[in-house]
Amino acid sequence: MRFNFVFGLTLVTIVVLGAIFAPLLAPFHPIMDADLMSSQLPPDGVHLMGTDNQGRDVLSRVLYGARVSLMVGVVSQIINSTIGAALGISAGYFGGRWDDFVNGLTNVMLAIPSLVFALAIMAVLGPGLPSLLIALGLTNWSWTCRIARSSTLSLKSQSFVLAAKSAGFGDWNIMRTQILPNIVGPLLVIGTLGIGSAVLAEAALSFLGIGIRPPTPSWGNMLTDARELLRSAPWAAIFPGLAIFATVLGFNLLGDGLRDMLDPHMRTARGDAGAARA
């Protein structure tokens, strides 16, 4: 459990550092250094991950691709978390018709495959990074919303929330200062897991040719390009694939680890011996 968390954190850290320092780490330029003479070279001392069919260095493109993939993952998940938390907390807190509406919307969202929905949004907005962020940011908030709503439902009848109301605090203030801090833990966990799935979704959309447009490298469109080379130059597909795998695995382990650490039952009792109470 502890090991998983550390392992996940390590994977994520490597990917993040690779993305940040891509210009320093990449031996070649991911787009400009195309050289048809050196296309489809297997991994060697110069090209550690080989080259693709246009002779571009796969390692450099994986490093630059990490920037795109991580940015899409993190930004779209921030949008998702914000929407989900706002809808979930307000639905749970106010109840009534607003709650019914949000519940219905959540169920509809859960019923539509999110990738198909994202595809539809992309079809309307056209390809490109901004529309990808919007498409992925609008389609994956249902779980966040559900968790936020159910946590709020149990929190709002707690007497500290009633006490805040009695003291005259407004509803907005109570949601922000009393409820949100108490559900930040689970939201963080879902958010982390969501980054992993957003990275996958980006890869899938780019693979389908409607995500990040070439020549900008993303792990998804690198896979698309490498599709025809699976026999002649498998490294062009393996390394971006491994990068996706490692990133998603890393975020998932991180999320699981966070959940365990933030779970109050797993926390050791501080001060009073809670377990000793007769």
């Binding site: 707690q158 007497s159 500290f160 009633l162 006490a163 805040a164 009695s166 003291a167 200062t177 009393q178 801090p181 108490n182």
Partner: peptide, 15 residues
Amino acid sequence: QMVFQDPFASLNPRI
């Protein structure tokens, strides 16, 4: 103002 029954649930653990 009100004093609540359960002294464990009546204080926000994060504040």
